[in-house]
């Protein structure tokens, strides 16, 4: 795997643009997934993860071949996601009143639920609930938790992705985990 990736990266560095498509194919799912979990929105996740690959391409010369490509691309993607979160306007809530209406909140704006098998509905609700809980975390804990529990990265890898000492990464995971426990633990 690493040898294949190294070979592709060398091709890209030599100017073979088509080879870059292979790199994108190898990492797109993981990068998209991280961005999705960071942002909680598929459209923005696609935007940010595609941007991450574009940056990887234009900065390919600065990529150190002795390090894992995944670490590098995850780092670009998480940084871009955090930038996006910071620039975003404050989130609106479904419970907020729609302006110019009397007592209508955003729940009423959605079409009636399509009939889905009950277990599927439960599953979807469960998944949405998990995502909501992840979104409730401050971004710096959010990325640590995502990389640790959803991407299964080692502490060392997370520290490389986040460019932080392992001890700091540990603290963030502990605090993120503790914050989640307070909300999920009782469920």
């Amino acid at each position: 795997m690493d040898i294949v990736v190294k070979k592709i990266v060398r091709e890209v560095k030599r100017g073979n643009q088509d080879a870059f498509a292979e790199l994108v194919d190898l990492y797109k799912d993981k990068v998209f997934h991280i961005a999705y979990r960071m942002l909680g929105n598929a459209h923005e996740a696609q935007d940010v993860s595609q941007e991450a690959f574009l940056r990887a391409y234009t900065n390919i010369e600065s990529y150190d071949e002795n390090r894992k490509f995944s670490t590098w691309i995850f780092r670009i993607a998480t940084n871009l996601s955090i930038d996006r979160i910071r620039r975003k306007k404050p989130d609106f809530h479904l419970e907020d009143q729609v302006s110019g209406t009397d007592n209508l909140d955003y729940h009423s704006q959605f079409a009636a639920d399509i009939d889905l098998p009950e277990d599927q509905v439960v599953k979807l609700e469960m998944q949405q609930w998990i995502q909501d809980e992840i979104m409730a975390l401050p971004p710096k804990y959010r990325s640590a938790i995502i990389l640790k529990y959803l991407e299964d990265l080692s502490l060392k890898e997370i520290s490389e992705v986040m460019n932080l000492p392992v001890a700091t990464v540990k603290t963030r995971i502990h605090r993120g985990r503790e914050a989640l426990r307070k909300r999920l633990g009782q469920a």
């Binding site: 997934h33 979990r37 696609q46 998944q127 992840i134 959803l150 989640l180």
Partner: peptide, 10 residues
């Protein structure tokens, strides 16, 4: 619970 979150594909 967190680990049970499904993986999304691009």
């Amino acid at each position: 619970i967190i680990q049970s979150a499904s993986h999304f594909e691009a």
